[in-house]
Design a protein around this nucleic acid. Structure first.
Lengths: 295, 295
DNA sequence: TCGCTCGATAAAATTTCTTTATGGACGTAA
DNA sequence: TTACGTCCATAAAGAAATTTTATCGAGCGA
C-alpha cells in the first residue's frame, strides 16, 4: 500500500473541515471512500492521523503536524503543476526563433502581432541569420525553431513549408526590360546585377538556375543589406535581384518589380529538430505564421 | 484523469535516467506501465514532457522545468512522510505526562530507563500533580496521559489499571503495634496519625475506610512531603500512613512497614481522553510502565 | 540487410477504488 | 428512557485503473 496524492488531499480536507462527511461533499465522493482512503494512508504511515468521534473528527498530534506541513507542500506542488499547465495553455512561455532577415522584417511582425492578440503572455526571442546558420542553431538547440529557405540538409532536421518567396528583379521603371512581365535569365545575364552575398539562399537559387542554362552569374555589386541594393537600383546602377519578402521594396514605389522567366522562388520553411516536439509557444508562433501567410 | 504521485515519480525517474526501460527496472515495474503513466501525466498537464527517440529519452523544455522543481518538492514531501513514519516507529516524539509524585519517584524512573533503552529518541515531559489536577490536565489536553489513582470521574476520561498501591503504616520497630502483621483501623484510630494533605488520594481512601467503620480520621499532623512524615515517624511522633510507592521508605530501614486490616490500597491507573488515540510515544511509555510493574 | 534496442500498443488479468447498503455509537429531544 | 438524527465504519458489488504479457515498428550499427 502506497501514499497517494488523492489520499493526502483527502486527509487535508478532512483535517481542515473536521468531518469525513463534509469533506466527502467537497471532494465529490461518498463518505466511505474517504474512510478507506484515510485508512490506507494511516496504514502506509503506520499510525493514526485522525481521531474519529461521533461529535466530529480531531487530528492526532501526528495528524496535526502532518497537516501543517502538507498544506504548504501540496500548495507548492499544485503551483508547480499549474505552471506547467500555463505552458500548455500558452499563458506562459518563450519561443527561441532563428529567422531569415527578410522573413523577420516582412512576415514575422504580422505573425507576432497575431500571436500577441491570442496569447499576450508569450514571448519571442528572435535571432536573424542566413539559412545555413539557422540550421546549425536549430541543430545545436540554440533555438527552438528556425525559419529558413529550402530543404534542410540532414535527417535530424524536419521542415514544414510556409510559403514560396519569389525572386524579383528590381529595376527602374524606365529600364528597357521593365516592359516585360517576366524577365528571362538570359536577358539578366547581360545586365549589371546587384546581388546579396554568396552565402545566401537567393544567391544559391539564382546560381543554380543560371548554371542550368549554361549562364555565368557575375554580379556587378554585392551587399549584405537589401536596402543597399535597392538604393543602387534606384540610382540606375543596375538590376537588383531580391526576394519578395525584402521589405524595402514597399517603400520604393518608383521601382518596377518583375518575376523572372523561369519563375525562381525559394521555399520558406519552418525547421525544427526531428524527434523533438514543438513547445506550445513554438506551435503558437507557427500557427500565427500560417495565418499571416494565408491572409 | 488526474496527476498522481506515482506518475510524477515515474516521470522523474525517466527524466533522470533518460530511459523508460531503465526507469522501469529501478521502479520494479514493466516498461509499458511507465509508457501509460507518462501518457496520463502528459494528458493531465496538457503537453508533452518527454521526447521519445530510439536513441533515448529527452525531456522537453517543459519537462526539464518540471523535473527540476519536482525533484525538490518530492524530496521534501518524502521527507515529511518519513518524519511521520519516525513518529510511528518511535524514533521521534514526546509524551507529555502528568503523574502522582509518588509514582514519579518510584515506578516512573525505571520505566523511563526501560523506554530509553528501546527508543532512545523519545522524550518525556513530566509534570507532577495530585489526582484531581491530573484529571484536569488530561481533560484539557495539557498532557497526553496521566498517572493517577482511582477511577476517573467523567466519561471523557478512560483508565487503564497499572497496579495496586497499598497503604502502609510506618511505625518505629519497637512500637507495640509493630508486632502485628496487619494493623486494624480501629487500632490506628487510637494512635497519633501522620498523614498527607486531605486533597490526596491517600487521604480519601483512608477517610472512606474509617467512615465505613464509623471511625473518625483525626490526624495528629499533616504534611505535603512524605519525607516529613517519615521523619516524624522516625522521631516517634506517631504512625505515618503512606502509599508503598513513597520512595523515602527505602531509605529508612529501621522503621517497620505494615499493611492495614482491612488492606487498603489505591489503584494506580493510566488516564487518557476517551476517543483520543495514544501517540506512539505515549504507548511506548505505557508499555515501559507495565514492564516495570511486572518486573 | 540483419539483428538489436527502445518505446508504443492491445488485450487480458489483476488490483484498486468507489458506490450502495447497512450497522453501531453517541448525542439530543420529547 | 426511548426515538431519532448524525457521524463514521464495514461489507459486498460494481466500476475503474493499473499492470503484465505479447507483439509491433522505428532507427541504429555491424
Amino acid at each position: 500500500m502506497d501514499v497517494t496524492l488523492k489520499g493526502l488531499r483527502a486527509f487535508l480536507a478532512i483535517a481542515r473541515h473536521r468531518s469525513f462527511t463534509r469533506a466527502a461533499g467537497l471532494l465529490h465522493v461518498t463518505q466511505p471512500a474517504l474512510t478507506v482512503q484515510i485508512r490506507q494512508l494511516e496504514v502506509a504511515l503506520g499510525l493514526r492521523l485522525l481521531d474519529r468521534t461521533p461529535q466530529g473528527v480531531e487530528p492526532t498530534a501526528a495528524g496535526l503536524e502532518l497537516a501543517r506541513v502538507l498544506e504548504v507542500q501540496l500548495r507548492d506542488l499544485d503551483h508547480t503543476l499549474e505552471n506547467v499547465r500555463d505552458l500548455a495553455a500558452r499563458r506562459r512561455g518563450t519561443v527561441r526563433l532563428a529567422a531569415l532577415p527578410s522573413v523577420a522584417s516582412s512576415l514575422l511582425p504580422s505573425a507576432m502581432l497575431r500571436m500577441r492578440e491570442r496569447h499576450p503572455e508569450l514571448r519571442v526571442q528572435l535571432q536573424e541569420a542566413v539559412t545555413g546558420r539557422i540550421h546549425d542553431m536549430v541543430r545545436a538547440e540554440m533555438v527552438d525553431i528556425g525559419i529558413a529557405s529550402g530543404p534542410p540538409p540532414g535527417p535530424d532536421l524536419a521542415r514544414e513549408p510556409l510559403f514560396q518567396d519569389h525572386l524579383l528583379a528590381i529595376l527602374p521603371a524606365d529600364h528597357p526590360l521593365a516592359s516585360r512581365r517576366r524577365i528571362p535569365l538570359e536577358a539578366l545575364a547581360r545586365e549589371s546585377l546587384l546581388l546579396l552575398e554568396s552565402n545566401t539562399s537567393v544567391w544559391r537559387v539564382l546560381d543554380d538556375a543560371f548554371a542550368a542554362k549554361g549562364l555565368r552569374l557575375t554580379p556587378f555589386q554585392q551587399a549584405v543589406h537589401t536596402s543597399t541594393l535597392v538604393g543602387m537600383a534606384q540610382a540606375g546602377l543596375g538590376i537588383a535581384l531580391l526576394p519578395s519578402t525584402a521589405v524595402e521594396l514597399r517603400i520604393a514605389p518608383e521601382l518596377a518589380r518583375r518575376r523572372l522567366q523561369p519563375d525562381l522562388a525559394r521555399e520558406i520553411v519552418v525547421v525544427h529538430r526531428t524527434g523533438r516536439s514543438l513547445s506550445p509557444a513554438a506551435a503558437a508562433l507557427i500557427d500565427a505564421l500560417r495565418e499571416s501567410v494565408a491572409a
